[in-house]
Design a protein around this nucleic acid. Sequence first.
DNA 1: CATCCGTGTGGTTACGTTTCCACAACATTC
DNA 2: GAATGTTGTGGAAACGTAACCACACGGATG
Lengths: 345, 345
Amino acid sequence: MSVEPLPHRPVTLADIAREAGTSASTASRALSGRGYVSDTVRERLLAVADRLGYVPNASAQTLKQRTSRVVGVVVSALDNQFYAGLAAGIEQVLREANYQMVILGDNSDPDEEIAGVRTFLAMRAPGVIMTPVGTEAASLLQSRGIAVVEIDRRLTPACDGVVIDNERGGREATMHLIGLGHRRIALLGVDTPWTTDAGRLKGYRTALKTARIPFDRRLVASIPVRSPDVEARIEALLDSASPTAIFAANNELAEQAWRVLRRRGLRIPADISLVGFDDVAWMEMVDPPITVVDQPTIELGRAAAGLLLRRLEKGPLVPPAVEMLQPRLVVRGSTGPAPKRSPRS
Amino acid sequence: MSVEPLPHRPVTLADIAREAGTSASTASRALSGRGYVSDTVRERLLAVADRLGYVPNASAQTLKQRTSRVVGVVVSALDNQFYAGLAAGIEQVLREANYQMVILGDNSDPDEEIAGVRTFLAMRAPGVIMTPVGTEAASLLQSRGIAVVEIDRRLTPACDGVVIDNERGGREATMHLIGLGHRRIALLGVDTPWTTDAGRLKGYRTALKTARIPFDRRLVASIPVRSPDVEARIEALLDSASPTAIFAANNELAEQAWRVLRRRGLRIPADISLVGFDDVAWMEMVDPPITVVDQPTIELGRAAAGLLLRRLEKGPLVPPAVEMLQPRLVVRGSTGPAPKRSPRS
DNA sequence: CATCCGTGTGGTTACGTTTCCACAACATTC
DNA sequence: GAATGTTGTGGAAACGTAACCACACGGATG
């Protein structure tokens, strides 16, 4: 590989055209593959471009074409495994389609979300995939004619979305516990208007209703996002409502709950059962392994990217589509028959 | 919030200038904050820009200024927790400095790495952060005058880098095992020319040497990247070399080793001890929790981004800097005294 | 033989911004 | 009162590409 020595002025189409004895127009057609070019001239231009190490200037292309190959992605927290998984899935599909991904984290903060979205606007991204936290960001994008796909949660009815069937997940987890004889089942959720938590709660209530178990508000903990005292709240729930099982509605709450149970010396599942939502590596590895509602994280990301590509191709006229992926209850050792008496706490 | 209804042609500087009764030049100076503008005119322009919902066209800016605010990041595998952590750290720092991150995964494949780097070239990224897999990508960037920061491993001497002290990590892990009486210590590493694995191996050998324990090649497994039969290789090592302890040089190998030991019904640490490298959540949660060399993942990312920003500010003349972060041995329950006899396998 | 068409090429313009330069108005200095 | 400086503004060119249009050529068609 010989590299031209420090060509600090990057090679342009004009350079190639000059070198090959054609016009810049022809060079453009040859290298972009649009429009008439004779085979001989095309080959000559390609050879020259290769020799000079030509790399097209994406900004010029974007400026001229009024759109870029960059898809914006904004997720809540880049360091959470679940969101990292979404990003990984999105990136896979986008790369196959020759798009780039620029990713930002809002910290579940609507203002940061809007700021992020503005930079995507500035980049003339044709589309954005987001785990929405406020409604304003999406409407800003849509008012500018930019495709939006919501992932994991729904906030904006008028855009595409990919979610999992949270209600079903919540219902199956709860029914599994009920089937084991549990009557006092705690629900650990996040205090948001997100459809994820609402859906899981709804599934929980549906399951209770079906089993004719009265809903007890004290068994439900709604924990604020980024709350510093999650463990204390779980402890309080344990003390005040003495559940025989816990259904933790996301992977972080499951981890916290697991730690609290451990620290209290409660035996799982003899004293108390635990079900998580969103299968992550540790859940299968701990003793006993955790029963969990598995959601296909990477697949969620892939589906969102697929939906976005479809939207970019078909235009804004096709009606919004919502893809619903199915979660899967994976029964492991952390759930067992309800103890005869509520455990000491 | 009132949003202008479907202004499908985005508003430009010229629009604002016309509306405010100035020239585009003045509008540019007012909004970019460079050059003379009287206070009254500036305020008028800012007001108009705000009212029309002006968002600068990043492509036009990049084209004109011949550089963008986009930093390229290429890591080996976006779905590996370690790399996701790096990305999270990088993003934090870049965002504070008002840069965007576009991230790509090569699959530890030099060709994909080069392809990725070419898109960064096309975007006129001022700098790129990468976990290098081949040398060509970095040299391509450097020949074009683009700042490169290597993270986690070193391949290109002439660029900045952030690494952790792998040798020390390897040495401390090994010495810890030796201190517990182990003599037959297996090393599970990846078969790469990367400085990470080389450093950890070197530390391992240094520790053995210091303790006057002869180095036995059969105790070292060099497993190819993306190998499908990792577990089989670990089994083979166990069978043929009957170690009393395993030092797994990264989080994935540690997980595989743990599974194999589990499956064989070996007691940890009674029959065999296990040390990992890179602390991830499950390691502390399993029973017994895993002794591990912890590396500050997020911090690694933050440092790399910091180094890049410094480079962008200072220019190419300051000599390359390599920042070395220190790992930390976290002793947990998976390491204990060496058994009197090598365990049944 | 004039016309038309398909093929191939080059000139020109536009995308939206920044920046250099010229210049105008006015204040300051010798 | 002329030269100089400060402050503020507008005109124009440039960044690199894509796409429209005009046009030229050779062959087929009427």
